[in-house]
Design a binder for these strands. Sequence first.
DNA 1: AACGGATTGACAGCATGCGGACGGTCATCC
DNA 2: GGATGACCGTCCGCATGCTGTCAATCCGTT
Lengths: 181, 181
Amino acid sequence: MKQKSKKPSFNSATAVWSLQDAYRGPGHLIRRLQQIAVAIFMDEFKNLDITPVQHIALVAIRDHPGLEQQTLADLIAIDRSSAGRIFPFLEQRGLIERITPPNNRRAKLAFITPAGTRLLASGVRLIRQAEQRIMKVLNEKEQRVFMEHLRKLVNINNTQSRAPLRMRSIKNDADRLNVAE
Amino acid sequence: MKQKSKKPSFNSATAVWSLQDAYRGPGHLIRRLQQIAVAIFMDEFKNLDITPVQHIALVAIRDHPGLEQQTLADLIAIDRSSAGRIFPFLEQRGLIERITPPNNRRAKLAFITPAGTRLLASGVRLIRQAEQRIMKVLNEKEQRVFMEHLRKLVNINNTQSRAPLRMRSIKNDADRLNVAE
DNA sequence: AACGGATTGACAGCATGCGGACGGTCATCC
DNA sequence: GGATGACCGTCCGCATGCTGTCAATCCGTT
């Protein structure tokens, strides 16, 4: 009964791909983890009535005043189309304002409102709790290792996705808005 | 210059949650990894014209002949509503058949067709390549550790999601269909 | 100054994922 | 035997994510 010394962590080389293989493979597990993370976030934020993507979009707008759609898409790694749907939503809820600068009539620069700032302030505790709830099944060392692997996977594979993250060194987007802010 | 000995792997306890915090936190990274995994899958399967969820649904139907919607939802961890949309799609593409048994007129049992079997056969190589492409940035030991953490996170948090995985010990769903198969 | 390419916002289409609702059907309990 | 509750399929609504297209606008080059 000699066993193969290097049993792969997934993806054994059989001729068929069974449901059991799927359970063990990264694809299915990553999808499940994403489902779980979203569910926990929604549970924590149920009183604030905001989704994970809307939340990070609002954070990006606060940290980069004067964002437009493409810049937001790059900053939080969503495509232009999705970004275009988030703006009207946040605007309609009064969390952001959009201003068309006089020197560029096609742009609409986004700024967070006091209501948006308040929402983010009350969300700080919640998002920390959400992250704790997801990760607490791992001990501290495991968490560190897992996060490191996660960052490695995401950073190196970044360009593989259709909406890669493009961190920008923006001093202040509002500079392009030549009106008193 | 004494540094805190136990720097957390994410989620430092500052008063605000900045975009940089989001980049380091599990929520954003898990979403990104899911995006990347889907993009790589779609690229590998572009000739077969099938999505990740449709693929695993087809695998589940092959491995559990005579599935109905709720059972499929439990087996691959999607909700009933999503399962209800996958069946007509697979049926219309000729990958599965649905039969209403005479002794239960409300059910529609799903069976894979020869075309479906062929599609899965030609997908075995592709899904292995997709998984390799995602994971190859980690070395073999890192992959093993990461997959172990991933399984731990998903299994223990399973019930946190709205559509938890419910593995079933089904001998043969087709037994309930009292007609010659 | 005029043209062409790039950018921007907006929209449509398709697939997932979740919540909820509806009617038809079955099985069980009284 | 009839009513209740559970189950099944179906559909609607909303948000995400990606692919396209379109017109308006801007900008660099000629």
